[in-house]
Structure formats: structure tokens, C-alpha cells
Nucleic acid binder design. Structure first.
Lengths: 205, 205
DNA sequence: AATGAACTTGCAGCCACTGCAAGTTTGTTG
DNA sequence: CAACAAACTTGCAGTGGCTGCAAGTTCATT
């Protein structure tokens, strides 16, 4: 019996898939940060990664997906943490702590994130797509919080509101982090944003 | 001498342009709400509006633009109002009042907005594009507020934070409004969201 | 070794979108 | 009114993202 490791489902086939996927995202980030998103074709990326362009679309639904990546894993982890925290503290505080998971993931993957930042800076059309990738997660989180509070998310604004605003705060912090090229820690920036949120966004001194 | 009306720059040429543009957005909204965004081609829309597909692209940069519309006018008006209000009250309060302009515009254009909502519900890819259309405006507003406060928007998070979160709050209110098919007034929903924001997003009773 | 599933690839094709070079309409000027 | 220029529409040809299909190839299983 082989040990089951969820991080590496073993088999040289799956290994190869991981490699190909990594090669494609790597090529996409490298080429696009160099030439700009619109000046790179899927053929370029596939060629650089050593596969056909048709294969590219077996891995990613769109060129944008290859550049932006999917962050389902981290978001799922955050929701799990949230489920644990919610019963013991106010909603905003629970979110503030749960968001530390994505923060850590981003700081661990900083090289890729800085490239993404570089690309998005020159192709702003990509920014909303990055938001979209979180849209489904936001919906699920909204329902989670609504269930916790025992309210109907369709009639009560609070769950959607707290999710949307914290999400926006996180995005602001992340943008500042990338713009500063990581000079300040993402965690500190997020913390500052949440503090201002919890205080009701008063004018700064 | 003909009266100068800035709403209608007169000349039968400009009139015709307005008509064509309106016909295109009308056709786009109608067809897409009926069949779904992906099931409608630019040819379909252009045909319905009685122009060539090439002409379509003289009016809109993309199929999405025709459906989502541009809201530059309202946003500019809001920023002008904001410039007047900022010196006399806290930032959050100024935004809360300035946002009444877009609110009024949306309520006046409710038929189109409900169609958009219907379309977006079935094609969620469009939602982020709607956000993008505001991205540039958000950036400008951020700088406006930073200038008012006398801080550097690159190092200080507050301006970007207050703009992003209020924008998110507005979006939540608007979504709720469209989901309820206008049963509740948009203004009331926006007001409730801003009240919660100003209170620091405490758990609801 | 054989079988079938998974993966890659070329091909043909749809559609969004663009530049260019007409042709047509409209506002203006002598 | 005639003539000219600017604005607008359109067809055409072409690029590139993206998909379904029908091979081929590679790998895991028995």
C-alpha cells in the first residue's frame, strides 16, 4: 500500500501535469511581464513551455487564467478557518484573522505576485478578472456569514456588505504591497486597513 | 441663431449618432437578456439595429461595452459634487452625499439596469467588467481625496481604502436593489450600507 | 503483453476585434 | 448653388482567442 499524500498524488503522469502547468504559468508571467499582455500570443506561451497551443487550452480556459492563476485553495482554507472563528468573536474580527491565511500564501508566492502586478499595471483590463476569480468565493462566504447570523442574505445587506468591504480592503492592502515591491509586509498593511474599517473609516489625523 | 443645448449638440448628424447608439444598446440588452450574452453575436446586434457589424465597433470597443454602457458622465458629476462637499465635512460623509447623484441616475434608468442585472446573472463574467468601468474613476477619486487630506496616496492607505470600501458598499446596495427588482429604493439601501460602514461594521442585532 | 483511460496534438472553424480603403452623407465656404 | 472637406458607414482581409473532433501517443492496470 502506497502512502496517500494529498500534496503529491504520485504517478509520473500527474507529476508531468504539474510540471507542464508550472511551465505554462511561468512562461506566461515571464513573457507578459516582458512584452506586455497583448503582445504575447498563446502560441508564444505554449512554444516557450514546449507544448502545443491546443494543449494550453487543456490547462487554462483563457490566456488570462494562465497569468492570474487560481486561488481556490487558499480561499477554501480561509473559509474553513472562518467557520472555526465565527462562533467565538464578532464577524469583522473573525474575517480579519481568517484572512491571514491568504496573506501568508501571497507572501510565500511573492515572486509570481510581483510579476502579476507588473503585468496588470500595463494591462488594467486584467485587474477585474482578478476580482472575478474571487467573486464566487465572496458569494459563498456571504452565505456562510448569513447562516452564522441566522439572517436571509437576500433581504439583509450585512453579510454581503461585510464581505465586499473587507475584500476591498484586502485588495487595497495587496495593491499597496505590490506597488511597494514588498518593502512593507502585506500582513501589516492588511492589519492597518482592517483597523481603519473597524473604526468606521474616520478621517486620519 | 439656434439655442445651444449641451444635452443635444444639434445637427442631424449628431442626432442620428445618438439614435444609432441607443438602437445598439437597446438591441444588445434586449437580445442578451433573451438569449444570454454568449448566444448573441455582434452581427445579431448590429442587424437588429440596422447597421453593419463594422459600424458596431465604431460605437463600442467591445460587445461587453454595448451591454454595460459607460457611466463616465455620472461619475464625473459625482466627483464635482465631492470637490464641493469635502472641505465642509468628514470624507465618508461627503462620499455618502455625493453618491446620491449616481443613485438618482440609476433609478432614472431602471429599465436598462434591470435588463443588465438579468444578463449579468446568467453571465457572471460581465460583473467584473462593470467594476473595471469604475476602476479609472476610483483611481481619480482616490487622488482627489489624497490631495484634500494632503497625504501621499502611494504611502498612505486611507484614500484608496475609503474609496474602495464605499465603492464596494455601493455595489452591494445596487445588487440588492436589482435583485429585489426595485421593490426597495436604491437610495435607502445605499444609506443603510453607509450607516453600517460608518459604525465600523459591527455585528447586527 | 494487452486493454483502456488519460493526455497531446493538428485541423477545421466560429467569433471578437482591427486597419485600410473605398463610398456616402453632411456641414461649410466662396 | 457648387464645391470641398470632414465625418460616418461599410466591406474586406486578416489576427488571434477559443472550441469540438478525431486521430495519435503515453501511461497505469490486469
Amino acid at each position: 500500500m502506497t502512502p496517500i499524500d494529498q500534496d503529491a498524488p504520485l504517478g509520473r503522469r500527474d507529476l508531468r501535469k504539474q510540471q507542464t502547468r508550472a511551465a505554462l504559468t511561468g512562461a506566461a508571467l515571464r513573457l507578459c511581464s516582458l512584452r506586455g499582455f497583448d503582445q504575447v500570443t498563446v502560441d508564444d506561451i505554449s512554444g516557450e513551455a514546449g507544448v502545443s497551443s491546443r494543449t494550453f487550452f487543456n490547462y487554462f480556459a483563457s490566456k488570462e487564467d494562465a497569468v492570474l492563476g487560481d486561488h481556490l485553495v487558499e480561499v477554501d482554507a480561509m473559509r474553513a478557518r472562518l467557520a472555526v472563528l465565527l462562533p467565538t468573536m464578532p464577524v469583522l474580527e473573525a474575517i480579519r484573522r481568517a484572512v491571514l491565511l491568504p496573506v501568508a500564501a501571497m507572501e510565500a508566492d511573492r515572486d509570481h505576485w510581483f510579476l502579476r502586478m507588473e503585468i496588470i499595471k500595463h494591462s488594467p483590463q486584467l485587474l477585474p478578472r482578478l476580482v472575478l476569480s474571487n467573486a464566487e468565493a465572496e458569494r459563498a462566504t456571504t452565505e456562510q456569514i448569513a447562516a452564522h447570523l441566522g439572517v436571509d442574505p437576500a433581504t439583509h445587506v450585512y453579510p454581503a456588505l461585510v464581505v465586499a468591504t473587507t475584500s476591498a480592503a484586502f485588495r487595497v492592502a495587496a495593491t499597496g504591497w505590490m506597488a511597494a515591491a514588498g518593502a512593507r509586509s502585506l500582513g501589516a498593511l492588511v492589519d492597518r486597513a482592517f483597523t481603519a474599517l473597524a473604526a468606521g473609516l474616520p478621517d486620519p489625523d
